[in-house]
Simulated scan of single mutants.
Amino acid sequence: MKKKVYITRKLPEEILDKLLSQFDVGMWEEEYIPVPKDVLLKEVEDVDGLFCLLTDTIDAEVLDHAPNLKVVTNLAVGYNNIDIQAASMRGIIVTNTPGVLNETTADLTFTLLMAAARRVVEASDFLRSGKWGAWSPMQLTGQDIYGSTLGIIGLGRIGEALVKRAKGFDMNILYYNRTRKLEKETELDIQYAELTDLLQQSDYICILLPYSSEVHHLIGKEAFSLMKKNAILINSARGGIVDEEALYHALKDGQIWAAGLDVFEQEPVPVNHPLLSLPNIVTLPHIGSASVKTRLAMAHLAADNLVNVLNGNEPISPVVSK
Rank of each mutant, 00 (worst) to 15 (best):
L261D: 02
V5R: 00
I281C: 05
Y79S: 02
W135T: 11
D48W: 02
I190N: 07
F264H: 00
G49L: 02
F126Y: 15
K181L: 06
T8Q: 08
L198T: 01
K18R: 14
S202C: 13
L208G: 03
D56S: 04
I145K: 13
S213K: 14
Y146E: 09
I173P: 02
A193M: 10
E43W: 02
R128C: 10
S88G: 12
F224H: 01
A115T: 10
K3D: 08
P285Y: 13
M27K: 01
T95N: 05
F126N: 08
I256R: 07
L69E: 03
G147H: 14
S291E: 03
Q200V: 15
E183Y: 15
L188H: 07
N172W: 14
P12S: 05
E187Q: 14
M171N: 05
A106Q: 08
L208N: 12
V71G: 01
L296S: 08
H65G: 04
V292W: 14
A250G: 05
G78A: 05
D197G: 12
L226F: 12
S317Q: 06
I219V: 14
T104V: 13
G168C: 11
G156V: 05
Q266E: 10
L19G: 01
N177E: 11
K228I: 07
Q201H: 14
L40S: 02
I158S: 06
A259E: 04
I145V: 15
S321A: 13
R178Y: 04
L275H: 00
R128S: 11
G220H: 08
E265S: 08
N235E: 01
N313H: 11
K252D: 04
G99R: 02
N80S: 10
G288R: 08
P12T: 04
L20A: 07
Q266R: 12
D262R: 15
Y32G: 10
T196L: 13
A302Y: 09
T111R: 09
D56P: 03
L54E: 07
G99T: 03
R165Y: 13
R119C: 00
P279Q: 06
Y32F: 14
V94K: 01
V39A: 11
